[in-house]
């Protein structure tokens, strides 16, 4: 609503903002022997406003799950700042953790793992209400029933255990749990990739309906590019702990500038694409975040790499209506 008053094209103030988030952790079990370090996030900046969806796409090892954990206060970043409503989130998590927890919630990928197998639906969702003291104990069950109804389940599911529910139903329970505290931002970490195709659409529609009703902001992590284009207003493409390209979905759909984004979107199989028109796939694997390549992290697989790419890491800079991290973005766009 704020956005509307400020007029079109003006970004609403962010609720959750990451500034140059860095996360490193010792490789190999946590003892830190050998002194090797995993560079999971190398300076990620992004912001989520009320009622909007920002999608983060990337492959395994790009740091998107670590990003989700940093944004939800599940891990402490090694450097950089996280701001919630303009306040320093690290300080808030120390002093008033419950204030942060009520504003930011998370939905995980695997609804089989994210629900406690020994707790009934009413307990799992009720936990959220109880620890935040959101309603008196007597009213709790009714409140849970209302939440469960909001995600499309019925009263009869209240006393079920997770193993008595289907995957889609479990994910609905996980969404109800996250929404119970009425958060402003929900980080959705691959929320439908563990579900069957026919169920994915149900859950995506549910997330969109809830967003429309509660104007909650989503950070939507996914590797399904078609889905991302469908649900997100803005997209950030990550590679090896960095954002390599970010902009509005409309801009990115029109054209991709970073060679990695191009390869990523081209690699996704697409129904209806004429046969033989797919680009040749990228060669090689994603380098290990332990032995980070020098210079541009993508130069080891980039079809356009030149000498400069191996020597000098490019900065994220504005080109053609979006931000790109590539020395030669202008040339490649020409």
């Amino acid at each position: 609503m704020l956005a509307r008053r400020r007029g079109p094209g003006v970004t609403p103030p962010p609720i959750l903002e990451a500034r140059d988030l860095v996360k490193r952790f010792p490789a190999g079990g946590g003892l830190g022997l050998g002194g090797r370090t995993v560079h999971a996030l190398n300076g990620v900046s992004l912001a989520i406003a009320a009622g909007e969806t920002l999608a983060v796409v990337g492959e395994s090892g790009c740091g998107k799950t670590t990003l989700a954990h940093c944004l939800t206060g599940l891990t402490t970043p090694s450097a950089g700042r996280l701001l919630l409503d303009g306040e320093d989130a690290a300080a808030m998590l120390r002093r008033e953790p419950m204030r942060f927890r009520r504003r930011v919630q998370i939905v995980f990928q695997d609804p089989y793992a994210s629900l406690n197998p020994r707790r009934r639906v009413a307990d799992t969702v009720g936990d959220a209400l109880r620890i935040h003291r959101l309603c008196p104990r007597r009213a709790r069950r009714d409140r849970v029933a209302a939440l469960i109804a909001e995600v499309g389940l019925g009263e009869e599911h209240l006393d079920r255990f997770p193993h008595e529910l289907s995957g889609g139903q479990r994910q609905r329970v996980a969404i109800a749990r996250a929404l119970a505290v009425e958060p402003a931002v929900v980080v959705c970490d691959e929320p439908v990739s563990a579900l069957d195709v026919s169920i994915q659409a149900q859950v995506i529609n549910l997330l969109r309906d809830l967003q429309a009703r509660r104007s909650v902001g989503y950070l939507f992590i996914s590797h399904n590019l078609a889905l991302v284009r469908h649900i997100a207003r803005r997209i950030a493409v990550m590679y090896l702990g960095e954002v390599v390209e970010t902009g509005t979905t409309a801009e990115l759909r029109r054209r991709l500038l970073h060679p990695y984004s191009q390869a990523l979107f081209a690699a996704a199989p697409e129904i209806g694409r004429p046969p033989g028109t797919a680009r040749p796939p990228l060669s090689g694997d994603v380098p290990s975040p332990i032995d980070m390549p020098r210079g541009c992290p993508f130069h080891t697989r980039c079809p356009h790499a030149r000498a400069r790419c191996a020597a000098e890491a490019p900065a994220l800079r504005p080109v053609d209506g979006r931000m790109v991290r590539c020395h030669f973005a202008e040339e490649l766009s020409a």
């Binding site: 195709v197 026919s198 994915q200 659409a201 149900q202 995506i204 529609n205 969109r208 078609a226 889905l227 284009r229 469908h230 649900i231 979905t249 759909r253 129904i271 209806g272």
Partner: peptide, 15 residues
Amino acid sequence: RAARWQEDGGRLAEI
């Protein structure tokens, strides 16, 4: 239909 995510952001056809 479910696999063809419309890019206009409309509601998806669900089973």
